[in-house]
Each structure stands twice: as structure tokens, then as C-alpha cells.
Write a protein that binds this DNA or RNA. Sequence first.
DNA 1: GAACGCGCTGAGAACGATTCTCAACAGCCA
DNA 2: TGGCTGTTGAGAATCGTTCTCAGCGCGTTC
Lengths: 153, 153
Amino acid sequence: MGPRTVEKHVHKDEAWERVRRYLAQKGLRSTGQRDLIIETFLAASGHINAEELTRAVKRRNRGVGAATVYRTLRLLSDCGVAVARTFGDGEKRYEVEDHDGHHDHLICESCGTIVEFEDDEIEALQDAVAKRYGFRLSRHKHELYGLCRKCIS
Amino acid sequence: MGPRTVEKHVHKDEAWERVRRYLAQKGLRSTGQRDLIIETFLAASGHINAEELTRAVKRRNRGVGAATVYRTLRLLSDCGVAVARTFGDGEKRYEVEDHDGHHDHLICESCGTIVEFEDDEIEALQDAVAKRYGFRLSRHKHELYGLCRKCIS
DNA sequence: GAACGCGCTGAGAACGATTCTCAACAGCCA
DNA sequence: TGGCTGTTGAGAATCGTTCTCAGCGCGTTC
């Protein structure tokens, strides 16, 4: 778990760096609410939705409004720190964008657990499919739904 | 294009058969609006959203209400004739469910074209991934986003 | 083929998630 | 310290979808 933790810290710093650059470039400001929301988002285990994030933020500062959370989430999407994904049932969730190394998801339809995976062979085959149809790929989404180990038994 | 056309007719008949059985089993009725909406949905090229379908239906019968279109779309999902999918930007679209053979999508981010593809090797690798994480899969979603041949030039 | 029961329908209200509006507020530069 | 401009919270507005309800029409019964 050691290296994993270090990695996460690196990602966090990268994320803040991105935010900082974006704000500066656009002439936007850094504020208490903004920082709190971003901090909370980055600390969350990923795959959080707007309502959950709002609740988490309010737990630390009751005064923050939902609108500000939505605004910040959009800001994070715009600067490439967060990505929105809509999973199976139409639930929109945000996760920290992974800039080096793409991952996809295994989703348990019973308990809602979301596991991330990476598979280079699949990625290679995707490129082959794209080539076959004359597409130039920019991104993809690959989600496997089913039951996790715990829910099978 | 010959065989392709025949295939589509077979799928249409299968779809109607499914609807018929479902209505009978649930003690539901067949009505003019219902038939018109289903007919229009099956005739559409797939990947249609509720609003587009409503417009198409109203073109043939102005009186049909949006609520009825939504109700019928739900009915079609319930009986396994249609499946709802949410593509990249959060747009919810419906397509005719393919009962023998699964397909995935290539989506052009510029013109919106959606191409279907099948790849057995990828499917096999998916199963391997699931096994690795102790999941039992029931379904999956695989979408490749980029530019189609036309939009590259 | 008339009558009846119950499912179906359209219109508009209601809903949940998200975005917008606006007046008050707060960074940041001079 | 002002003052310019970006930011904020609250609530209104919007969007897509579902619900409600009174009236309509399918299909069965006699």
C-alpha cells in the first residue's frame, strides 16, 4: 500500500498544479470555498456524485451552496482535473482524471462497488478496431457490469 | 445490402413478437398510438433519443403526447426490445436490443455518427479481466470516441 | 352490437438534477 | 483604502422525465 499512497499524493499535487495554472491563465481567483470543494473532491475515493460531494463539503462548512459545488465541478472538468461519467443506470459521477495511464471500470450491480482496471491488450485491440473503421480515437469508455466476489456468494 | 435488409426485417419481426408476447402476458392492450410509436422506433436508424422519436411520431400523428412516447419507450425497455444508453456527453439514446450477438460503439465527436462494431477477442479479454477481479459479468458497455474518416480530412 | 370494466391517453403539474440570476461580498491591484 | 471584477448563496428557472387525472377506447361478455 506504500507506493500506492505515494502515487496518490503525486496525483493530488498534479491536480492542484493544473487548477492553479488554469485559474491564473483565465484570470480567475482562488477562494476559500473553491479550495475546500477541490480539496474535498480530491480526498474522496473517486466516483463521487454532485450530491455526495455537496454533503461532504457542507460537513466541513455548512454555508457552502450547492450551486458553488456544481460550478467548481465544472471548473475541474474544464481544467482536466475531473471527468464526469454516466454509469449504467444514468447516475452521473465524477472522478479524478488520470493523465498518465488510462483505466476502465468493473461495476457491481448489486452493491455498487466500482473497481478500476487497465488492460493493454484490450487497448491495442481498440486501436485495431478504430483503424478498421477509419476512426482516429481520442478517448474511450469501457465498463463491465456484473456481480463482485462478495455479492456472488 | 441485400442480406443486411433481410436481417433487419427478421429483427423487426422478432421485436414485434416480443412486444406482442409481453402485452399478452401482462394483460396490456395494443393501441393505435402504441403501434405507431413502436413502428416509428423500429424504423428509425437506432440511437434515437426521446425528443427525436417524439418529433418523428408527431409528424405522423400530431396528437400523440410526449408522455405516451416516454411510456412506450419504457415498455420497450421492459420487454427487452429497446435499451437505453447514455453516450459521452450525457445524452440518453435508445437502440433496438440485439439478442444474438453483442455490439459496441464507435462515436464521432465531430459529426455524431455512431458506428456499431463487434470484436470477439475483446470480449474474451473482458472475461479474463472479470475473472481476475472475481466478477461475474452480466453485460458491458464499450465506447470508442474520436473522429470518423470524413471528419478527419 | 351494446354495455361494461379497465387499460390507455393527452395535458399539464410535479419532480430531480443542474444551471442561471442577482444582489451582496471578497480577492487583489493601485 | 478604494475600486474593479470575480465569486458566492439563495432561490428562480430550465431541462428531461415521470406522475396525475379525467375522459377515451379496446376487447370481452352476453
